Simulated assay, not measured.
Amino acid sequence: MTLPAPLLVGVGGAVGAVGRQLVSVALTRRQEAVPRGTFVVNVVGSFVLAALTASAPGGDIALLVGTGACGAFTTFSSFGVATVDRLERGRWLAAALNGVGTLAACLLAVAVGWGVGLAL
């Protein structure tokens, strides 16, 4: 029996959101240049989604893990807010490290994840 798509996305989203909260609480420290929790969830989520997409499972797995879990686990909005917050406080180097560093790491994670997914 297959579950309805909204339910699959919702269950995956719940798992992803809880996972993001746990990682963020465990890793993020005040006033760091690059918020480690946000950085880690975005890099890991980029890798997992790329591996999943490249392996092309489709259907329920894509909805549960890709749209649901990865969608809720990763957080572009927190990345954007953290970068602008650093700019607003005059921490230009920290903003640049967060912006460029996160983007570069996520793109690298996608490339590696894609390779892994194709190998599966």
Rank of each mutant, 00 (worst) to 15 (best):
G90H: 08
V41I: 14
L120W: 15
V44T: 13
T102F: 00
S78H: 01
V116H: 00
G12Q: 08
W92C: 06
V112Q: 03
A51S: 07
G58K: 01
F79M: 06
G45S: 11
V18G: 07
F39P: 02
S55Y: 11
T67C: 08
T53H: 14
R29W: 10
V15R: 02
A96S: 12
L107K: 02
M1P: 11
L118D: 11
G16D: 13
V112R: 03
L52S: 09
A54P: 04
A33L: 08
L103V: 06
F79P: 01
G19Q: 07
V48F: 04
E32L: 05
A14V: 09
L27V: 08
R20M: 13
G101N: 05
T102K: 00
C106R: 07
S77N: 03
A56T: 12
L8W: 03
V48W: 03
R36D: 03
G37C: 04
F47T: 01
T53V: 14
F39A: 06
L22I: 13
G66C: 09
L22R: 12
V48Y: 06
G80W: 08
L3P: 05
A104E: 01
T53M: 14
M1W: 12
A54F: 10
A17T: 00
G113E: 08
Q21H: 12
L103E: 00
G12F: 04
T38G: 02
A54S: 10
A104C: 04
A26C: 00
F73K: 08
A105D: 07
M1G: 15
G10S: 05
T2R: 11
P4E: 12
D85I: 09
A109E: 07
V65G: 07
L108D: 01
E32D: 10
T75V: 03
A26H: 06
A56E: 14
A51T: 02
R30A: 14
G13M: 00
A119V: 05
L87M: 15
M1V: 14
R20H: 13
A5S: 12
L87Q: 14
G45N: 10
A105W: 04
L87T: 15
V100D: 03
V11C: 07
E32C: 06
G68C: 07
R91I: 01
A109K: 07
T67H: 07
G117F: 11
A33D: 11
F76W: 14
G101Y: 02
L108G: 02
F73I: 08
P4N: 10
L64M: 09
R36W: 14
V41P: 01
E88C: 06
R20Q: 13
R30D: 15
R89K: 13
V110F: 04
G13L: 00
A5V: 11
S77Y: 06
G101I: 05
A111Y: 09
S24W: 11
D60A: 15
G68V: 03
A72C: 09
E32A: 09
L8I: 03
A26S: 13
T74N: 09
Q31N: 14
A51W: 10
